[in-house]
Design a protein around this nucleic acid. Structure first.
Lengths: 313, 313
DNA sequence: TGCAAAATGGAAATCCTCTTCGAAATTTCG
DNA sequence: CGAAATTTCGAAGAGGATTTCCATTTTGCA
């Protein structure tokens, strides 16, 4: 490690003279620069402390950089400036500007901190992921542990049993649809809400049937043969979801369903369906598995759509 | 990283023809050369297995390289070829020869293995409960695996670092409030939607500020000193959430926040806040951790409320 | 609303890294 | 012991990566 640092120092010889800008500004208006003119952090921890202090007010892009550095230190350490910039959604030059703001000679200099950190923490920090023992001490923390465990269990179950064929078929149906309707009540609504958002962000137009203004049946009344409906429904099945799906079925729309048991009244109406079982803790039920499967569906649809567009024209 | 690999492959096009030495010797004395003619290892573990097998007889310098790679994988991942060569006590070109011996296009290609390994973000190797091996065969299933892994990683992070004090304090604030307002836009909306539902089911009255009819500011305009506001907000912070929270802050409501970085503009306005970092996969972000923490909050509030009622009434 | 200052995006220029190649040194085998 | 093959070394060229610079956009303020 010492060797590497020496080599680095050699490469960047004279970093002090190569950043006159900072010295100048320092001399001109120290009052404001004190926030940005922090002495160059010497370790990753120092940098993190500065970022966390919250005393620094960054403009938009630089803040974006700060957030990315905070959340993805590994990628910063391992990637090139272009790769990091791409992942962070900024220009490479922005990264350099950011580094200089903190008194580094450039991005490479800043990156050194991250490399050292990764190097130092690598072999030991591997065996993590265990909740701290204190988790059991307070009731609320115990509950949090239970909720997290339920979410994990739900995710595990996806790996254990997953109907690949149905999943693929559902993507086909949705990708082939003219317009995608999303239906989900109560617990299922957060799922459809997120899927609707993600679909829109992927450029796939869709209708989230949210029943605001009690207009759900009117919305569904517009569904046609070329459209598809993705229903998300959990037991107990006492919401309006089955009724809405029934209407869509009458109108000969393609229906696909995410549900939590084979007894769901939606299954007879559905072209394809997939079972996702969510675990619960003390009656509080996870959504982790449904969201994951739903996101995968969205991704599959978006991918197939763009592929089709490339093909077709 | 995929980019890098492609570039590497292009640069080293026809690696087989560029090492005729090996092929020749192969024909002459296969017993010894089979060791070098290994197919290119695809993962760090594979490479390690080959090195460990001991069946390979390297010349002096190459052996030196093998030993160094074995003992200092992190330095290999993070350094440049010059730095690695220096530390290993060989010429840079020796490293390139070593890499080519194993069928890599060059040093960068070999280094990719080490980078991937260090990053380890890829919980595929993280333990049991793998999705079926077929998971890699189809793109969509691979994506599902990635989404699930991201959700798991998010949940893991709760266990690693969790600000218990803030969490407890947030429960106190919310439990003591007259009416609880919930604010969250875009990605955060599914979270607040689910929390609102759960609160209601627990008998805790609340207002979900959903901005239907663009009435969010009017709703928030009714918040008072005795009320609390739970804001959920993720970067980028370009939604109306900060504005809504600012209004609530002016009206002296108690504000608590779930956010994903200390840079959130909500933090200065918040009485207490807690950081929850969600992992993402290919830009699709999990909500698992936020939902879990939120549910735990709801449970804590409900428990404290009913305890208070028992006491007071 | 208009001006000034700051921030941003993008491309050119520079620097460094990686790879290639031929000569020298070493080893191996007859 | 000598010749051939193999390995090593070091320099030079090609290709990226990083940085710098400037036009444009955005922000802040009167």
């Amino acid at each position: 490690m010492a060797d590497r640092k020496e080599a680095g120092a050699k490469a960047g010889e004279g970093p002090a003279s190569s950043q006159p800008t900072l010295d100048e500004t320092d001399g001109e208006a120290p009052g404001r620069k004190s926030a940005l003119g922090y002495t160059r952090p010497r370790t990753y921890e120092e940098l993190r402390a500065v970022l966390a202090s919250g005393t620094v007010h960054f403009p938009k892009r630089l803040r974006q950089v700060a957030i990315f550095l905070w959340q993805h230190p590994d990628d910063v350490a391992l990637g090139t400036i272009v790769q990091v910039a791409e992942q962070a959604g900024v220009q490479p030059s922005t990264l350099v500007r950011f580094a200089k703001t903190f008194g580094f000679a450039g991005f490479s200099d800043l990156q050194g901190l991250f490399k050292d950190h990764v190097k130092g923490s690598w072999p030991e920090a591997r065996g993590r992921a265990e909740p701290s023992p204190k988790a059991e001490t307070r009731a609320e923390l115990h509950f949090l542990g239970g909720i997290v465990a339920a979410a994990r269990a739900s995710l595990d179950r996806i790996g254990e049993s997953f109907d690949v064929a149905s999943f693929e078929a559902m993507i086909d149906v949705l990708a082939g649809a003219d317009l995608i309707y999303l239906v989900g009540s109560k617990r299922a609504f957060p799922v459809t809400a997120y899927l609707s958002l993600t679909l829109s962000q992927q450029g796939v137009r869709n209708v989230l049937v949210d029943n605001v203004g009690s207009t759900a049946f009117d919305q569904i009344g517009c569904i046609g043969r070329g459209d598809a409906l993705l229903a998300v429904s959990f037991s107990p099945y006492n919401s309006i979801t089955p009724d809405l799906v029934a209407v869509a079925h009458e109108r000969e729309a393609q229906i696909v369903t995410i549900t939590d048991s084979t007894f769901s009244p939606l299954i007879p109406l559905s072209r394809r369906w997939i079972e996702v079982i969510e675990s619960d803790f003390a009656g509080f039920r996870s959504l982790a598995a449904s969201l994951s499967v739903g996101m995968a569906l969205v991704h599959g649809v978006a991918a197939r759509r763009s592929a089709g567009r490339r093909q077709g024209g």
